[in-house]
Design a protein around this nucleic acid. Sequence first.
DNA 1: ATCAAATCATACTAACCAGTAAGTTATGTG
DNA 2: CACATAACTTACTGGTTAGTATGATTTGAT
Lengths: 185, 185
Amino acid sequence: MATPMRDYILSVASDLFSRQGINATSVDAIVAKADIAKVTLYKYFKSKEQLIIEYLREYDARLWARLTEITAQQKDAVSRLYALVNGMLDWIGDPEFKGFAFINASVEFPQRDDPVHQSSLEFARTFRQMLTESAREAGLKNPDALALQLALVIEGAAITERMQRGTGAVENAKALAKTLIDAAS
Amino acid sequence: MATPMRDYILSVASDLFSRQGINATSVDAIVAKADIAKVTLYKYFKSKEQLIIEYLREYDARLWARLTEITAQQKDAVSRLYALVNGMLDWIGDPEFKGFAFINASVEFPQRDDPVHQSSLEFARTFRQMLTESAREAGLKNPDALALQLALVIEGAAITERMQRGTGAVENAKALAKTLIDAAS
DNA sequence: ATCAAATCATACTAACCAGTAAGTTATGTG
DNA sequence: CACATAACTTACTGGTTAGTATGATTTGAT
């Protein structure tokens, strides 16, 4: 059930999680920043773990919405793939970009049997499927391999750009992606 | 000062840090696994933070040693660059690979002013410099851009492979790297 | 055998953490 | 007005954490 209060709590938590890291953000810190009672948080989320998973889910939904909006403006399938990749990379280049939530979460929760880790894996998979499908629709050669390589480049750009701002990771990733897509045409 | 005890403690800590994550590994857990007294750990490392930084330093040293060994066997500069990249990717493909320590650390400690974050940044930089230098020695075009793109591919492969084992990230990264190097010849 | 350094075990601190209990206040609907 | 709902405050539990204190035991060199 989405209520204003629930959305508000989630937005505050998301902000702290992405800026300070998940493990470094205590429930008390979220409650203090949101200026609410702790009981209220636990009314909407049964545990911190659940809150983290909802954070990942919301992040995924936003990403999805953003990308469908971008691609919807394009006429042909190849342009859509280009828009997808470049839109992603533009986002990474934004100074406010704090890394992909699901990648960060999988690093902070590296144990395979951890529910948070499993959620992050799930979102990483849908991300790749989105690329695969787009490559297939564009009628390119080896859509699976192409999508994997594009995912690799995008994730690499996300890491590199976040660690060392303004060293050209995004521009180089764009050039790289263009080479890959052109070669598969 | 490197003593056997210090090395031993560091090796136990490194193992736990890389397998469970840094924040998820308590000093008590290290002490228990190593079967030593807590005081002994604090004799050699003045804080957990210092231990983490030494862990990153040792990881970097091992990586460096490994790569110089690999490249030393090659005769010409281009082969050395190939060996460097492929050696890195083979390592990533190893089932025991747990991600690059400095990338993981920068995610677990995302605050720019954190000493651990700064250390991880430093090691990421030397990694890239190693690639740049190798590309330059090989006499390739745009060594800086090439090194950045290679770093991007390698880091992307590390993330992708660690999250989804056996989906071909390493093989695709190798093919991608070869394309890049060939194009710069 | 003695002495010193290294390591040990146990116990403590002060802070933090996730989550719960209990009773209070505000708000809007019948 | 009465009632219900939602949020509040304060305080607590039980567990964990990094780091320290204290004194005992081992070890190796002279």
